[in-house]
């Protein structure tokens, strides 16, 4: 189990780096997909199969397909990608570095936090997730669904020229 955890983590970190560093955007998307699948593997190690499968369906199966879709249609080539000016590059490095610093600080703090609940091996199973969602977190769940509907209606409004 520990070996699998390190194996999947290594894949995730490597592919995440490739996402950033590869020149071809389609390659980036594919590395991101591999990263997501490895992440689903991590969920399975935590015995939350439902989360893992939903992660695969939603992220790899739907969102990344749309990403790939857009990138394929744009057909980005190396020549088309514009060279950024020096100022943008320096500012990007600075902001990225600050963000990295914040992340490191945050993870350093979390190392000392102990989980509030004892680990329950059934927590990720579909019936448990359902019960938690519809009992403890009913209001936030429903409100997020309202948010989704408004986003969908907004998308339709944007998409249609004459409503």
């Amino acid at each position: 189990m520990v070996f699998l955890f390190y194996f999947l983590s290594a894949i995730m970190i490597l592919t995440a780096l490739f996402v950033v560093f590869s020149k071809n955007p389609v390659d980036s998307v594919i590395y991101l997909i591999i990263c997501f699948i490895a992440m689903a593997g991590q969920y399975i190690l935590l015995n939350s199969q439902f989360l893992a499968v939903v992660h695969v369906i939603v992220y790899t199966g739907a969102i990344m397909v749309l990403f790939l879709f857009v990138i394929m249609l744009l057909n980005l080539n190396k020549e088309i990608i514009l060279q950024k000016s020096k100022v943008t590059r320096i500012s990007a490095v600075v902001t990225g570095g600050i963000f990295f610093l914040v992340m490191v600080a945050a993870t350093r703090l979390t190392l000392e936090i102990h989980p509030r609940y004892a680990f329950d091996s059934k927590i990720g199973l579909v019936s448990e997730v359902g019960k938690t969602l519809f009992h403890e977190f009913l209001l936030p769940f429903e409100i997020s669904s309202v948010l989704f509907i408004s986003a969908m209606i907004g998308a339709v409004m944007f998409g249609k020229k004459d409503v």
């Binding site: 699948i37 499968v53 790899t60 199966g61």
Partner: peptide, 25 residues
């Protein structure tokens, strides 16, 4: 015997799209 068998089938189907998309592109 996964307790989310149907969803697993769906996940595999949704990954299967990539085969066609990547090949075509």
């Amino acid at each position: 015997d996964l307790n989310i068998g149907i969803l697993y089938v769906f996940a595999m189907v949704s990954i299967g799209v990539y085969g066609i998309m990547i090949g075509g592109w």
